[in-house]
Computed example of a mutant assay.
Amino acid sequence: MIVVAGEALIDLVVTAVGQRAVPGGSPANVAVTLARLDQPVRLLARLGTDEYGRQLAEYLSANRVDLEWAVRAEEPTSVAVATLNASGQASYEFRLAGAADWQWTPPELPELAGTAATALHTGSLALALAPGAQVLEDLLDRERRRDGLTLSIDLNLRPSIVTDRAAEQARVRRQVPLAHLVKASDEDLAWLYPDRSVAEVMAEWREVGVSCAVVTRGGDGAWLLAPDGSLHEEPAVRTTVVDTVGAGDSFTGGLLAALADLGALGDRPADRLAAVTEPQWRAVLRQAATVAALTCGRRGADPPNRAELNALLNAAS
């Protein structure tokens, strides 16, 4: 079982023809992607008891995301207003003040030792917004010391919300060494480190204990720095882009699902990732890129299921 911790919010998607409220949030999107790829997944989230919160709970349950550890919170549900331009690119405005997602307290978190969890994934705003971010960071720290499951972080920075670059650099510098797998976009790194190359950042992550560093590059594909120091590059899978909502999250879900299928997630995480071969890393990246492409080819954060993914992978082989 893969555990995903973080926000589940409502994307209010605005286009030229109107607006619609759809479930979203980076960690929730990752969880749905994993579930659709037939991976057992449990979402550790704080879901509001308002109408949006009920909509989220129904959507997640319908997609076979286990909500046993989800907290039903009295605070309102977070809302992200996603405005799409003519090419389908999304820009975001967030309504987060006092919302449920960011109010974690230590007693709300489960003890992962002794459970069926093989990995814990988190990131995005959940690791950035107080007071809950510190609670989740402490969870990562405990689990890294225990060394009993694979830890994954997707930076997924939001400069329009967390605007202090120096503070974000300090946070990322503190949190990255807690993970075995770290993923970011080239846009994340260009904002965070305007004077540094992607290669420099990935190499630094490896030096501080990250086994696998992944950077997505939009239409230019993705890079993966493997535990042995080899760099793997995967071109983007060509598709007709409807919009990019959830594309990065579905990439992350596809990546984790591929590693789970290889038995590369679990105890002794660094050893498991080091055992992945070069051809397997290529296949892992190819799956992640294909999942992202299928998501971009339809409206909203709507990742493919296993049959849809296999059909496209088989057609390309």
Rank of each mutant, 00 (worst) to 15 (best):
A5P: 02
E7I: 01
I10F: 04
G18S: 00
S26M: 07
A28D: 02
N29S: 04
V30M: 02
V30H: 03
A31E: 08
T33R: 07
L34V: 07
R36G: 10
Q39V: 11
R46A: 03
E58I: 12
Y59W: 15
L60F: 09
A62N: 14
R72F: 12
P76A: 01
P76F: 08
P76I: 08
V79R: 09
A80E: 05
A80M: 00
T83W: 05
N85E: 14
Y92P: 04
P106Q: 02
A113N: 14
G114M: 05
T115E: 12
A116M: 11
A117K: 04
S124Q: 04
G132P: 04
G132R: 08
Q134F: 08
L136W: 11
E137V: 15
R144C: 00
R145T: 13
L149H: 10
L149S: 03
S160D: 13
S160E: 15
S160K: 13
V162M: 13
Q169K: 05
A170G: 03
H180Q: 12
W191V: 04
W191I: 08
P194G: 01
V201D: 04
A203D: 14
E207N: 13
C212Q: 09
L225H: 06
A226T: 01
S230R: 15
S230N: 12
D243C: 06
G246T: 07
F251M: 06
G253H: 01
L256T: 04
A258F: 07
A260D: 14
A270M: 11
P279N: 09
P279T: 09
W281S: 03
R282Y: 04
A288E: 01
G300L: 06
E308Y: 00
